[in-house]
Write a protein that binds this DNA or RNA. Structure first.
Lengths: 180, 180
DNA sequence: CAAAACGCGGACTTATAATATCCGCGTATG
DNA sequence: CATACGCGGATATTATAAGTCCGCGTTTTG
């Protein structure tokens, strides 16, 4: 239905919380703060680490932080890391199937890029060009310009209090305590 | 996997055969000529008629022809007619879900267009701009410049002979003759 | 006028991808 | 050594795309 789906949306929103935040933030914190599916987000972030956009710290108090300054991370880089460089169009080389060629399409018919594929490639290029011109810093700025000052303090407090409140969260695993 | 799928590809290739062809061509002819699924193509073309890009003639010897000169039909118009104005991205308004808002996001958080949605909209606009700049005539020209002259005659002959050869085609319906 | 060849559109099936969850492992912290 | 992480494989659940089938009305043609 759309080229870029919920994975990308979740990830982009999550990354905005990491801008200018030197402390690692866990995927669970990011998910619960934004009320998005935790297990799903946790599955997306390793892709960003492999792409070199995030740095992960393991173990207790671990989490993610940006690998580079936010103004050096383009939306295009994020999208490609999450969705895997999706193309606008998959050419199936219909031009060579014409029955007049009888299974043996001549060279003139299949050489170069298919005209239909060509216009799609140009459109894709225009799209990627636009995505490459916006950075996480740009996005974060547009959000912060709207928010009132007290909000950032509240957000910081929420992160600080996480280690305690997680204990009472709805998402709880039962190691070997589930027996009546 | 891609924003535009096989429907669009089949349709665009089919339309190229209608450029400068005043005689109506049936969907079955278009499908068999290009070796693409006939029932599927037959399902796409009515969309183009409703969009005003094609004119259909019913009954025996019926078929489709372009409603306008090929240089007035953009690839964008075709794609929108077939796929229904797909967007690059579906914003789910994640920004309003932040738990700090406690179910009641303040106005500053949800007013205007979401920054992430915004960059996607700009990219989509750039893509559509590019698709709108290419017409069916442009595509047809790039194909014809490659093909040798005799090819067009062969194609014309194939269409002319269709009414007879269809009789022996593999795709044959059995009205009430299927009894052992 | 009846058969044939069309377009039309709904119902249906299948294939594939997107979304989401679960579980066990290794690792760092305190 | 218990806890809270990241990691990754396996699995379930939808949703969408791709493809098929069938019955109806329309138009030509013999």
């Amino acid at each position: 239905m759309a080229l870029y789906g919920a994975s990308t949306e979740y990830v982009l929103h999550s990354l905005l919380w990491l801008v200018d935040n030197p402390e690692p933030v866990s995927s669970l914190d990011l998910a619960e703060l934004q009320d998005i599916p935790a297990a799903f987000v946790a599955k997306q972030l390793p892709k960003l680490e492999k792409a070199g956009l995030l740095i992960a710290s393991e173990g207790l108090r671990g989490g993610y932080r940006l690998a580079n300054p936010a103004d050096e991370i383009s939306v295009l880089a994020v999208v490609d890391a999450v969705e895997g460089r999706k193309s606008l169009f998959n050419c199936q080389e219909i031009r060579g199937r014409c029955v007049l060629f009888d299974q043996q399409p001549p060279r003139w018919a299949t050489q170069g890029v298919c005209g239909i594929h060509g216009v799609m490639l140009r459109a894709e290029q225009a799209m990627r060009q636009e995505l490459s011109q916006t950075s996480l810093a740009d996005l974060a700025r547009s959000v912060r310009d709207k928010a009132p000052s007290p909000f950032f303090g509240e957000a910081q407090s929420w992160f600080d209090g996480r280690v305690q409140t997680r204990r009472t969260s709805k998402v709880r695993q039962r190691k070997r305590s589930d027996v009546s």
